[in-house]
Each structure stands twice: as structure tokens, then as C-alpha cells.
Simulated scan of single mutants.
Amino acid sequence: MEKNVKNRIKLILLNNIVPITFFVLTLGAVIAAKIPPLFLISEVVRRLSRNTFLVLALIIPVVAGLGLNFAIVLGAMAAQAALFFVVDWNITGVKGVLLSMIIASLLSIFLGWLVGLTLNRAKGREMITSMILGFFANGVYQLIFLFFIGSLIPFSKTDMLLPQGVGLRNTVDLYGTVAGALNDILVVNIKFINIFIIPLLFVVGLCLFITFLLKTKLGQDFKAVGQDMHIARTAGIDVDKTRIIAVIYSTVLAAIGQVIYLQDIGTINTYNSHEQIGLFSIAALLVGGASVRKASIWNAIIGVILFHTLFVVAPSAGNRLFGQPQIGEFFREFMAYAVIAFALAMHGWRARKAKH
């Protein structure tokens, strides 16, 4: 009996080694940083409403057996492209945000379809392929917005362009157009903690949508394909089509999530804002206890809380421990890669152990 209890505890610890390790690390950083609790809670709540939608966009591909979809950066690029034109057309407020979401979603359907076709030709190597696709798409994105805007593609707001009149500036300001458009609709203030209700309702709506989707016929197909493609094909499921649909869902949700994220930030770093979206979203999901083969809504929420708590306290912790806040910045970047490497290593170890 005692041996069974020990084995069960050992199994729980092994299965949750990533979130447990990160929780201990985050707790240590919080203690070292000595940040006021209200400020910390305020920052984490804001990041929860800002980032969770993007992390949730990763769940469907994991369920469908495509692993961690680094190609959500294509959805982020579509969102930024949509926002650039909405700002240029001077469509402000909620109308501007909703129009950006619609344009970004339409672009993302096409981009997701292309990504899905590519990943179907790289079965078993989806993650590295989606990462390379992200790099390739970034090159195309920079070509368009650095050389085509203002030359081949007309742009009326010259203050958004580089001095020579071709290419967008490094930073596009959203203040006065769509910045805070969703946040400002309904704000609840509790002891200096601002809770933006509408972005949180978007997150809750997506959680309900994913829960509902996974109970439908399509959701069951996602699960079947994720468990075993050969058996799913034998059961009459169009495996390739199902995988493409999963990627399209992920890309569209990432585009909507990036619009929510950027309206909260208030500025777009034209050539860099999208680059870290895939990395940090995947790291947050893994921190919450997800793996390459299994992910849930709770993994996403717990991961965002833990990962972004560390993001908030790392510079202060670095400053107090080493006298250099920049060390905290380096540590945050290092942790994002380290979490992904650690989670993938643990997944490989568990898979090999189960096989033997």
C-alpha cells in the first residue's frame, strides 16, 4: 500500500515536473524581487486578458496531433497587416478592432490552408517545419512592408512611412485609433487593480468554444487523428483535411488574439512584434503542464499566470540579486527557450520509457 502511494506520488511529480519546477522558480523570483503584491496582481491580471487568447490558439493543433504550432506567427502577421490598413483608413475604436479581426481572419484562413498543406507533407516533423515556415513568412512580410508599401501598395498616411516614402516605420502608434478600444468598454477597478472585462470575455468565449468544438464530430476527428492517423484513416476520417482544418482554426484564433494583444499594448513594433509570439505562447502552454501530445484550457491559463508572473518580477529580481536589471531581461529570454527544451526533453524521455 505504502509502495503504491509512493509510486503514485512519483508519477504525479514526473508528469508535472515542468509546472512544479517553474512554480518554485517563480516563487523564488517573487520573494527576491519584493514587488508590492497589488502591483504584481494588477500586472498578471492584465497579461491574463492580453495573452491568454494567443496561448489558447495552440490547443487545437496539439489535440489533432500536429504538436506545438510555431506557425501561429503567420496569424500574428495577418493581424498586424490588418491593423496597418485600418489605421491608414482612419477607422477608430471598436469598429477598427472588429474590422481588423475580420480582415486578419480572412487572411489567416488562406495562410492556415497553406501551412496545413505544407505540414501534411512533413508528417512527423510538424514542429520544426512550422518553425521554418514562420521564418520564411517573416521574410515575405518584411519584403512587403519594407519595400512594397508606398511603392506598389498605396498608403495615404505619410507619417507612417519611412522618410523616402517607401516602407513602414519601425513603430506604428495605435493611440487615437484602436489602442485600448476593447479595454475601455468596461473596466472594473478593485483596489487599484484594473480588470478589463471585454478581453477576458473573449478568453472565456474561446474556452467555451474549444470545449464545445472538441465534443462535436469534428472535435472527435481531431482527437482520433491525434491519437493514431492510421486508425483514423481506417475509420473513414479524411486525415489530411482534418489536419488542415485544425491549422486554419489555430491561425485564425492567433490573428484575433494578436489584435487583442496589440490594442492593449497600443503600439506595433512593425518588424518585431510578431516574432516572439509563437515562442512565448508555446513556452507559456508548456509551463502550464501541456506536452507535444496533450494540452488543455487549464494548461494555458496556469501557464500564462506562471510564465508572466516570472516576466513581471525577473528584472526586479535580477536587480536585487545582481545589481543589474538587464540580467532579469536576459533571464526571461533564456527561460522561454529553456522551458521549451526541457518540456520536449521530458516528453521524449517519457515516450521512450513508455515504449520500453
Rank of each mutant, 00 (worst) to 15 (best):
L186G: 02
G180C: 06
L279S: 04
T242N: 01
D184I: 10
H230K: 13
I193S: 13
G165L: 13
L146S: 08
I153D: 07
Y271F: 14
L146D: 06
P199A: 11
L213T: 10
G180D: 01
F212V: 14
E275G: 13
D228V: 04
T270A: 10
A254G: 07
L208P: 09
I149C: 14
I198M: 11
D228G: 12
T242M: 05
L200A: 06
I244G: 03
I210Q: 01
A254F: 02
G278P: 04
D228C: 04
V172C: 08
G219S: 03
N272W: 00
G165W: 13
V247H: 03
T267F: 12
M229G: 13
C207G: 11
Y261A: 01
L174F: 09
I197S: 08
G165Y: 11
T267R: 13
F280L: 15
I231H: 00
V188Y: 15
L201I: 12
G180Q: 06
T211E: 14
V247Q: 01
I248H: 02
I260Y: 05
Q276H: 15
I231S: 02
L161E: 09
A232T: 06
A254C: 05
G219Q: 11
T234L: 14
D173V: 01
V247E: 01
R233V: 07
V259R: 09
G226N: 01
L214R: 07
N170W: 04
L182M: 05
D264S: 15
K241M: 10
L168E: 03
D159P: 10
A232Q: 04
G167C: 11
I144A: 07
T267D: 14
M160F: 15
P163H: 06
V239M: 06
V204Q: 07
F280G: 10
H274E: 12
I277R: 04
G266Y: 04
V239S: 02
L161C: 09
G219P: 04
V188H: 11
T251C: 08
L146V: 13
A224G: 04
I268T: 00
G257H: 00
A179M: 03
Y271I: 15
K241N: 08
S250R: 00
R233G: 06
T158I: 15
Q276N: 13
I245F: 03
L279D: 03
I237D: 02
V178D: 00
S273T: 05
K223R: 08
K223N: 05
K217C: 03
C207L: 11
V166R: 03
D159L: 15
R169D: 03
F212P: 05
I265A: 05
M229R: 08
I185G: 12
